[in-house]
Each structure stands twice: as C-alpha cells, then as structure tokens.
C-alpha cells in the first residue's frame, strides 16, 4: 500500500467526507486555525524579538520562557488539533500540494530549532537573563525561529492556491516530481 492509496482510503472515510462537505464546520475549523496564529506565532515572535533585543528589553528572558511559553504551547496544541482536522478533510490534496510539503519541511526546521534552543542555548539563561542583547546563539535561534515560522505561515496560506495542483496538467516535470503527482498518458 502506498501513502497515496492510504490517503485515498482516508479521504473516503465518512468523517472525512462529512468535514470536507460541511457548510460550517470546515470554515470554523479553518478560522480557529488562523486566529490561533495570534496566540501561537504571536507569543513565539515576542520571545524571538526579546532574544534579539528588539522588544520587551526590560523583561528578563526567563520570565518570557517561563510565563509566556505555556501560552505558546497551548496555542500550538490548538494549531495541531485543527491542522489535523483540516488535513483529514482533504488528505490527498494536502499530500500532493507543493506548499504543504514546503510547510512540513519548515515545521521540521522550526521544531529542531525549538529543541536545540531549549536543550542547549536556554540552559545558561541565568547568565544573560537581563542582557538587552542576549548571546549570539540565542539571537541565531531567534532568527531561525522567525524565518521558519514565517515560512510556515506563508506556505500554509498558499496551500489554498492551486497553481501547481496535480489536477491541473500539464505542470512542469519538476513540480509533478516534487508533488508526487500521478500523471497518466497524454
């Protein structure tokens, strides 16, 4: 069984069809997904800007990581839950979307950056907690975070545009390859 055939099976399960065809549940889910960006990316961005010395310079870094990050995590949980629902509604479309694939790659980059920051860089926070300009490793983490999350948001938004859809042929061979399009004989 290929990934594609598994997702085609998933797309035909009753709940997937119901979500896909619903008049209100899908747009509500999509709206929650978008609005929770303010909580999730918004709070993460404030921490990144603090690490760059560009916002909240009078607030110790540890207070942001201690008291703001729980809100970031809560936001992330909502993003994942609604994101999974949206994927479940049209799994094949997302799987074959070049923007979705870019988004997944950037999510991995952002995730690795979060892991490295918290397991290494942030360990020494007591030494630079009140610095207006934290050390280089923290600033690098902030820039990687800002760029990767911004990329996730932009590529996520562009999934809605079908310029490179497998259903619209001919596409350049590169696009068909990157999106795993199944192209029949002409």
């Amino acid at each position: 069984m290929t990934i594609l055939s598994a997702l085609e099976w998933l797309a035909h399960t009753p709940w997937s069809v119901a979500l896909h065809e619903s008049q209100y549940v899908w747009p509500f889910t999509e709206s929650i997904h978008v609005l929770t960006l303010t909580l999730f990316v918004g709070s993460a961005v404030m921490l990144d800007l603090r690490l760059l010395g560009l916002a909240l310079r009078d607030v110790p870094v540890s207070e942001l990581t201690g008291r703001l990050l729980p809100w970031t995590r809560a936001g992330f949980a909502v993003m994942v839950a609604t994101g999974v629902m949206l994927f479940y509604a049209t799994p094949v479309t997302y799987y074959q979307s070049i923007f979705f694939r870019i988004k997944v790659v950037l999510l991995v980059v952002a995730g690795v950056n979060v892991f490295v920051f918290h397991t290494r860089t942030h360990q020494s926070v007591s030494a630079w907690d009140r610095d207006a300009r934290p050390p280089r490793a923290a600033r690098v983490a902030a820039i990687v975070s800002l760029v990767s999350w911004a990329g996730v948001v932009v590529s996520g938004r562009l999934i809605a545009y079908n310029w490179f859809s497998c259903d619209i042929q001919p596409q350049p061979a590169f696009i068909n390859w990157v999106s795993s399009c199944v192209v029949g004989p002409p």
Partner: peptide, 24 residues
C-alpha cells in the same frame, strides 16, 4: 497574515498582563 501574528503577539502580551496572567 504575518502582520496578524505580530499584532496578535503585541496585543496579547499586554492584555494577558492586564488580566494578571503571563508576564505578571
């Protein structure tokens, strides 16, 4: 949409503080 993230962050951090949450 990127502006929304930024606006959301800048608003929330202060509104949470006014609610006695977050950076209290």
């Amino acid at each position: 949409l990127l502006g929304l993230c930024l606006l959301g962050g800048a608003l929330l951090v202060v509104d949470l503080r006014l609610l006695g949450l977050g950076l209290r």
